[in-house]
C-alpha cells in the first residue's frame, strides 16, 4: 500500500512539471469541444427533432464532460515505458522488484490518469458552465445524481485501466502495439460512446454496444450526469460495472501471469 502511494505521488509531481503543456492541452480540447457542439447545434436547429432520443442540452453537457474527463477514461492511453520495456526485454528488471507486476502497473496507470485529469478537468468544466446558451454545461439535477455520477466515474476509471492492462499485456505476445490493437482502439472508442452517446446509435449497433463492457467507461457516467439515465435505471448498470471490473481485472491478471511465464523462459 505504501509502495502504491509513492507511485501516485511520484507521477503526480512529475505531471505538475508540465503545466504549460496541460494548458495547451486544455485550449485544444476546448476548441474541439466547441467545434463538435456547433455541429450538433446545427443539426438540432435544422428542424425535425422527433426521432432524437436526447435533448440538445443533455447532449452538449455530455460532450463537455467527455472533453473534460478525456484523459481519465480514454481506453488506449499508451504507457510508453511499459511498451518499450516489453519490446526490449528490460521488463526483466521489473520482475525482480518485490511488488506484484500487474498491480504495480495498474496503480501507475491510475496515478497517471488521475494526475493528468486533475490538472485539466476543472478549467474546461468551469468555462463550459459560463458559456452562453446553447453551448453551456448544465448542472446535475440534484445532489443524488451527482454522487452516483461520481461513483460511476470512479468505477469507470478502474474498468478502463483494467481494459488497458489487458491491451498492454497483449503486446507481450504480439510485440507490436499497432495493427490489431489500433483497430481495437477505434472500435472500442465508438462502442464506449467516446464520439457520440449510445442512444444516438443505429438500433443494431446500440444492441451490440449494450452487451459489451466499453459503454460503462464513458457513456454511463456522462448519461447519468445529464439525467438521460435516471437514478433508478442506473442501479443495475452500476452493479454491471462492478462485475465487469472483476472479470476484466481477472483476465488481465491471468494474462500477465501467462505472459511473464513465457518471458522468463525467453530471458534464460
Amino acid at each position: 500500500m505504501k509502495a502504491i502511494r509513492s507511485i501516485f505521488r511520484l507521477n503526480f509531481l512529475n505531471d505538475l512539471q508540465y503545466r504549460s503543456q496541460a494548458l495547451a492541452g486544455i485550449a485544444t480540447q476546448f476548441f474541439f469541444g466547441f467545434v463538435f457542439i456547433m455541429v450538433y447545434v446545427a443539426f438540432y436547429e435544422s428542424g425535425n427533432t422527433d426521432k432524437v432520443p436526447m435533448p440538445l442540452t443533455q447532449l452538449v453537457s455530455y460532450l463537455w464532460l467527455n472533453q473534460a474527463f478525456f484523459s481519465l477514461i480514454y481506453i488506449w492511453t499508451k504507457e510508453k515505458d511499459l511498451i518499450s520495456m516489453i519490446k526490449n526485454g528490460n521488463v526483466a528488471y521489473e520482475l525482480v522488484r518485490p511488488i506484484n507486476f500487474y498491480f504495480k502497473w495498474y496503480a501507475t496507470m491510475i496515478a497517471k490518469r488521475v494526475s493528468r485529469v486533475l490538472l485539466r478537468f476543472f478549467p474546461v468544466l468551469l468555462i463550459a458552465y459560463f458559456l452562453p446558451k446553447p453551448f453551456n454545461l448544465m448542472l446535475p439535477s440534484n445532489l443524488e445524481t451527482f454522487l452516483i455520477f461520481l461513483l460511476s466515474l470512479v468505477l469507470s476509471t478502474f474498468l478502463v485501466v483494467a481494459i488497458s492492462m489487458v491491451l498492454h499485456m497483449i503486446t507481450f505476445f504480439t510485440l507490436n502495439e499497432k495493427g490489431v490493437l489500433e483497430i481495437f482502439m477505434s472500435v472500442s472508442e465508438i462502442l464506449a460512446g467516446g464520439t457520440i452517446p449510445l442512444v444516438m446509435f443505429p438500433t443494431f449497433l446500440y444492441k451490440i454496444a449494450y452487451v459489451l463492457p466499453f459503454r460503462y467507461t464513458c457513456d454511463l457516467p456522462f448519461r447519468i450526469y445529464t439525467g438521460n439515465i435516471s437514478i433508478s435505471n442506473a442501479t443495475p448498470d452500476i452493479i454491471g460495472s462492478f462485475i465487469w471490473i472483476i472479470v476484466v481485472t481477472l483476465i488481465g491478471y491471468l494474462l500477465t501471469r501467462k505472459a511473464l511465464k513465457k518471458a522468463v523462459i525467453q530471458g534464460g
Binding site: S46, K51, V52, M200
Partner: peptide, 13 residues
C-alpha cells in the same frame, strides 16, 4: 458520426 447522426436527423442546415 456523420452516418449515425443522419440516421436521427434528415438534414443539417
Amino acid at each position: 458520426i456523420i452516418l449515425a447522426l443522419f440516421n436521427k436527423f434528415d438534414n443539417i442546415k
